[in-house]
């Protein structure tokens, strides 16, 4: 597992039929019926990849909600990028993360000089035309508060200037299932889809544009107090 993504062994790739079944029977009823999504500006969502969905991160439900925005038959092309140190930390979690959720593992805090191997899996997926889900905040932070964005998103965007980055603001999932809680309490969740950003050559300018779009989405939002 030193260079995840470089050469994908067969046991690291999603089991499509079981994954589809899992999303059909468990994830979609949970996310779309028990929780419930209010999606704004759905038109801005690309129907086909390659694309990068970049969202804020409050809950494990975030990934499932974003994956549920696509029709079930597009699921094989939708891949969340997730931290290798967390999601591959034991055999069972690694099996579930890679074969059922279909994550692309990313080594966090890798050596800057080693970018080629670090991003190999992501590059390959985007070249295949996949839709990647990225959480630039890194880990799930304080529920329902925007944390600082890490610039890995900017690096990936600059490596693929023709691939659109779709900023997405999520609200409510951190109330339903925050970090450290095991009991799910349903709240309607808002999904604000921003306008696509692309064509960046500079990582900082990309992050600036992304932050600006996330701020704009947050201004539209009308969230009840939760303290």
């Amino acid at each position: 597992m030193d260079h995840p993504g470089e050469t994908m062994a067969k046991e690291d790739t999603p089991l499509h039929w079981l994954r589809t079944l899992f999303f059909l029977v468990i994830v979609r009823p949970l996310v779309l019926v028990i929780v419930g999504l209010n999606v704004r500006n759905r038109r801005a969502l690309p129907f086909r990849g390659p694309a990068i969905l970049a969202a804020n991160h409050n809950s494990h439900l975030d990934t499932l909600a974003l994956m549920s925005l696509f029709p079930l038959r597009r699921l094989p092309q939708v891949r969340p990028v997730a931290a290798a140190d967390y999601f591959l930390r034991n055999r069972w979690l690694a099996w579930f993360s890679q074969r059922i959720i279909g994550i692309l593992p990313l080594k966090r805090g890798a050596n800057r000089r080693d970018l080629e191997t670090q991003f190999a899996g992501i590059d390959a997926a985007l070249e295949r035309g996949d839709v990647l889900i990225l959480f630039p905040e890194g880990s799930r932070g304080e529920p329902e508060q925007l944390a600082r964005f890490k610039t890995g998103l900017g690096m990936i965007a600059c490596r693929h200037p023709t691939v659109p980055v779709i900023p997405i603001l999520l609200h409510g999932l951190g109330k339903s299932l925050p970090k450290g809680e095991a009991v799910l309490v349903p709240f309607f969740c808002d999904v604000f889809i921003g306008d696509a950003l692309q064509g960046f050559e500079d990582r900082k300018r990309c992050m600036g544009a992304f932050e600006q779009e996330m701020q704009r989405l947050a201004e539209h939002a009308d969230f009840p107090a939760w303290e």
């Binding site: 419930g36 529920p143 109330k175 809680e181 309490v185 309607f188 009840p224 303290e227």
Partner: peptide, 26 residues
């Protein structure tokens, strides 16, 4: 009833501490 209660609890201000209370409300 579930949808209506969920919508109500989603639009009103709630306290973070009351997550488990709201679970019982459901």
């Amino acid at each position: 009833s579930f949808l209506a209660l969920k919508e109500f609890l989603s639009v009103i201000p709630t306290r973070r501490a009351d997550r488990r209370v709201l679970f019982w409300a459901y």
